[in-house]
């Protein structure tokens, strides 16, 4: 997709998610989901022949950054980047509606008594939006199961942003669709999850700084807007730079995926998730400091983005996890290999 089309896509996404901004609830936004289905954003990167829009990861980057910026209460990463991709890769028809996806290592899977499919027991832990989706794509070893949530027990939980992270309890649940996936999918799943989360982080960081800038120009102390104080200008400039870094890293990682595929882009994705996570902490700290006490309450909307920054930086691998991966890779390539690694040119 050309950069012009990407910028149109971004405008559309910002308008769709911006219109849905609502701090009165933390629940799944069914109306917004209808909009993303209608506009083709819900299955943006799924190939057209599988019912998707056939977009690139760079397209998804534009959409996910906007979703993060406006704290969209819909499982876009889970539906498009994870579940739809995984099911399609396994040759399972992608169901309609919002989906989730998870990796499970502790399930008991036995051939179904009735023939096709399997009987599955065990617990799927902290499934994003578990209570709100009709089905979950589960990667168990090199098998993919399409688990319909209607037959599962739901133990509700949330992350710091009060987004659903529910345990789904399966008790000899019959799963009709079971299929093998190529082993590359096992490598790819966490990379997709991390890049999706990193893009959302980059968006939430952008949203938080946008709010802090607006607040600073409106809040009057000492007889003038606090934006006129150099101390505020300096600290928000630091936050602005963090937003720019998170966007640059995550968008660049998306481009690497478009060029080389997920497995080849693993270094870029690791660096991008780590850098976006680092930006998240800085941005949340600075934007709260600028907002003062009101930002520290439920009366103000800043929390919608800052709680997401705190939640998402730890989901799908924290800075510690991904920087460790980067560090290991650097030690592997050594002094001579560092610059070629950074430039992606051996």
């Amino acid at each position: 997709m050309s950069s012009e089309m990407s910028s149109e896509l971004r405008e559309m996404a910002e308008s769709v998610f911006g219109d849905a901004w609502d701090s009165s609830t933390d629940a799944f936004d069914a109306k917004l989901w209808e909009s993303v289905e209608q506009t083709g954003l819900a299955r943006l990167t799924l190939p057209e022949e599988a019912g998707g829009s056939g977009g690139t990861m760079s397209d998804a980057a534009a959409v996910l950054i906007a979703a993060g910026q406006f704290a969209a209460r819909v499982p876009l990463v889970e539906t498009d980047l994870l579940a739809a991709w995984l099911l399609h890769a396994a040759g399972i028809e992608v169901p309609s509606g919002p989906l989730s996806a998870t990796v499970a290592g502790n399930l008991t899977i036995q051939p179904a008594a009735g023939g096709a499919g399997a009987d599955v027991s065990g617990t799927l832990r902290r499934v994003p939006w578990g209570r709100a989706v009709s089905a979950v794509a589960v990667l168990a070893g090199e098998q993919v199961l399409l688990v319909e949530t209607a037959g599962a027990g739901v133990e509700e939980g949330t992350n710091l942003a009060e987004e659903p992270r529910d345990d789904l309890v399966l008790n000899e649940l019959t799963v009709r669709h079971v299929a093998a996936v190529p082993s590359v999918a096992v490598v790819e799943f966490p990379l997709r999850a991390a890049l999706g989360r990193a893009l959302l982080l980059a968006g939430a960081a952008r949203g938080a700084v946008a709010m802090a800038v607006k607040y600073a120009t409106e809040r009057v102390q000492f007889g003038r807007p606090i934006a006129k104080l150099q101390a505020i200008q300096q600290t928000l400039a630091l936050a602005g730079a963090e937003v720019a870094a998170a966007a640059a890293a995550t968008e660049a990682a998306a481009r690497e995926v478009d060029k080389h595929g997920f497995a080849e882009a693993s270094f870029a994705i690791a660096a991008a998730k780590a850098r976006a996570g680092e930006a998240a902490g800085q941005v949340a700290r600075i934007t709260h400091q600028v907002h003062g006490a009101i930002g520290f309450t439920r009366e103000h909307d800043l929390r919608l983005v800052t709680t997401r920054l705190w939640a998402w930086r730890d989901e799908d691998g924290s800075e510690a996890y991904w920087n460790d991966r980067v560090g290991a890779r650097v030690l592997e390539v050594g002094a001579e290999g560092l610059w070629p690694l950074l430039t992606g040119t051996p």
Binding site: A270, R275, L338, L342, T343
Partner: peptide
Amino acid sequence: RRDLGGLVSRYWTLR
């Protein structure tokens, strides 16, 4: 190793 990785993640981003 993590600290080293952190430096390199930031180098990559700055580039």
